[in-house]
Each structure stands twice: as structure tokens, then as C-alpha cells.
């Protein structure tokens, strides 16, 4: 049990982390929704999100509950309350964001180590933006009929989304994730935990083998999986996007949707597996959150 010290919170403490992360990130989401966006040509200069909030919390507290809380907070405050709830489309965001924050939180083993904190913050942002980018590209490719008839569309989508990805990672990532997280984590560490009746995470904490290996391992699988899926498709269609591919021929365009869903489903399975595992370990039933 010693090796898992950081995860042994009581059920109520998990609920506190969850509520804390949900309220704070939810509120920040409402605010970022209201900040106007600026466009420099096709490049958007906007306050995408205050990722530093869930990132800091995931590094200081239990990463899983901070991650899920933040995602739910975004859905409730930023979507439902502002009447913009996108229904099923939110599921993809929810999973992508939870996964990214969770991994960022787990990757920081010592919150007092600035390098780890910085790395963790960037990993979280890059991962999240990458998943979002992939999904966005796929959306257009699937959504537009006869994509090949439109000269330059397939490329332009990739270029636009790619630029947006770079922009988000460099602009939002540094300004709204990296710097604030570096500012906050050392200030909050050791100060916020007693307010929730917890001890701060130990520096010399040793994570169990399963914690280190499985998560990046699974992550790599997901990322590589979706990447390979993407490139597979690209090479086959050579940017021309031919619908005469045998699969599509036989099943119609519908087949693309389930295929697009593969990375999402994989991610879902991963998260639910992780939650189940934690749930079993703590035997507290809180895993029902997901």
C-alpha cells in the first residue's frame, strides 16, 4: 500500500478534489468563453482555456479526480449553463481533456521539481490539442461529401487545423498552461492540501510499476493508433480521397464514422479501465463517477 500512498485518499477527499476542480475549471471556462477572440488572418489569437487550473490540481492532488472534475466542470459551466451543450460531441472533448490532464498529473512525480511541472504542463496541452486536431480533421473529411471534388479542401483542412494546433500549443500552451502552472504549483503545494484535510504529496514518492508503465504505454498506444489510422488513410487516398476504397464501397460512407470512433473508444476503454482499477484498489465505489 505504501507505494500507492498518493492515491490513498478517503472517498470524501476524492469528492473534494473532484468538486474543487469542477467548480474552478468550470468557472474559468465561463470566463474564457466570454473573452473576445482576435484573428490575425486565419490564425486565431484567443484565450483557449485556463488549462493551468486542472493541471495544477492534478499535479498537487489525485490526478484522476482532478481531471474528471475539470472535464465535467467544463461541460456543466461552459456548455450546459450557457446553453451551448453540444450533446454527444461533448463526449469526445470530455475524454480527450480528462486523458490529457490525467497523464500530465501522473507524469509529475514531485510537484516541487520545476522541470517536471513544466514538462507535465506541456505534455497535457500537446496531448489534448493533438486529439482535438485529429477529431476536427476527421469531422470535415467525413462530413463533406465528395471531398475530392473540392480542390484543396482536404489539404486546407489539415493546414488550418495543423496551424491551429501549433498556435494553441505555443500560444495557449505557454501563456495559459505552462507559465501559470509554474507560478501556481509551488505556491499551492503544501498550503492547499491541509485545507482539504490531506497531507501534501511526498517528494520521494515511489509510484508502483503499473502506474508508470501502463499509463504512458496506453497513451502511446492510443496516440500511435490514431496516428497510424490517419496516415493509413492519407496514403491510401493520396490526398485525393477516393471513395472507391473497397470497404467504403461495400458499406457506404457510414463505415468512416465507426472508424473515426476507434481512437475515442480506445480512450474510453483506457479511462474506464483506469477508473475501475483505482476503484477496486480503494474499494470505495467512487469509480461510479465515470
Amino acid at each position: 500500500m505504501n507505494t500507492h500512498q498518493r492515491f490513498t485518499l478517503t472517498q470524501s477527499q476524492k469528492m473534494m478534489v473532484f468538486i474543487l476542480s469542477m467548480s474552478l475549471y468550470g468557472l474559468s471556462n465561463m470566463i474564457t468563453e466570454l473573452i473576445p477572440k482576435f484573428y490575425l488572418g486565419p490564425i486565431e489569437l484567443s484565450v483557449e482555456y485556463f488549462a493551468f487550473i486542472p493541471l495544477s490540481l492534478a499535479m498537487i492532488f489525485h490526478p484522476l479526480y482532478a481531471a474528471i472534475g475539470a472535464s465535467l466542470g467544463e461541460v456543466i459551466f461552459g456548455e450546459i449553463m450557457l446553453g451551448q451543450f453540444g450533446g454527444i460531441g461533448e463526449l469526445e472533448k470530455f475524454i480527450a481533456f480528462s486523458l490529457a490532464i490525467f497523464i500530465a498529473g501522473v507524469s509529475v512525480r514531485n510537484p516541487e521539481n520545476k522541470k517536471q511541472v513544466a514538462l507535465g504542463a506541456m505534455v497535457g496541452v500537446i496531448l489534448h490539442q493533438f486529439i482535438s486536431m485529429s477529431v476536427d480533421i476527421l469531422k470535415v473529411w467525413v462530413g463533406v461529401e465528395e471531398l475530392e471534388a473540392v480542390e484543396g479542401l482536404a489539404e486546407s483542412v489539415v493546414v488550418i487545423e495543423g496551424l491551429a494546433f501549433l498556435n494553441d500549443v505555443l500560444f495557449s500552451g505557454i501563456l495559459f498552461a505552462l507559465l501559470p502552472t509554474l507560478y501556481l504549483v509551488p505556491r499551492l503545494y503544501g498550503k492547499i492540501e491541509p485545507l482539504l484535510g490531506m497531507k501534501p504529496r511526498k517528494n520521494d514518492l515511489q509510484l508502483g510499476l503499473s502506474d508508470i508503465v501502463t499509463v504512458p504505454f496506453v497513451l502511446a498506444t492510443v496516440v500511435l493508433g490514431s496516428l497510424s489510422f490517419l496516415f493509413e488513410y492519407l496514403s491510401e487516398t493520396t490526398f485525393g480521397w477516393e471513395w472507391e476504397a473497397p470497404l467504403v464501397d461495400r458499406f457506404g460512407e457510414w463505415i468512416v464514422f465507426p472508424m473515426m470512433a476507434i481512437p475515442v473508444i480506445v480512450a474510453l476503454v483506457v479511462v474506464s479501465y483506469l477508473v475501475k482499477r483505482k476503484g477496486r484498489k480503494d474499494t470505495d465505489g467512487y469509480s461510479e463517477v465515470v
Partner: peptide, 21 residues
């Protein structure tokens, strides 16, 4: 999308499917 599409050699009429999207 439209602007960048044009840059890659598309034309406005061909961009109609985009409108549909």
C-alpha cells in the same frame, strides 16, 4: 477553411460543399 482553400487552388464555386457542411 474557405480562405485557405482558395490559397491551395480551389475556387469559390467548388467550395459549395463547405457551405453544406
Amino acid at each position: 477553411y474557405l480562405i485557405v482553400g482558395l490559397f491551395f487552388g480551389g475556387n469559390v464555386t467548388a467550395m459549395l460543399p463547405l457551405l453544406k457542411l
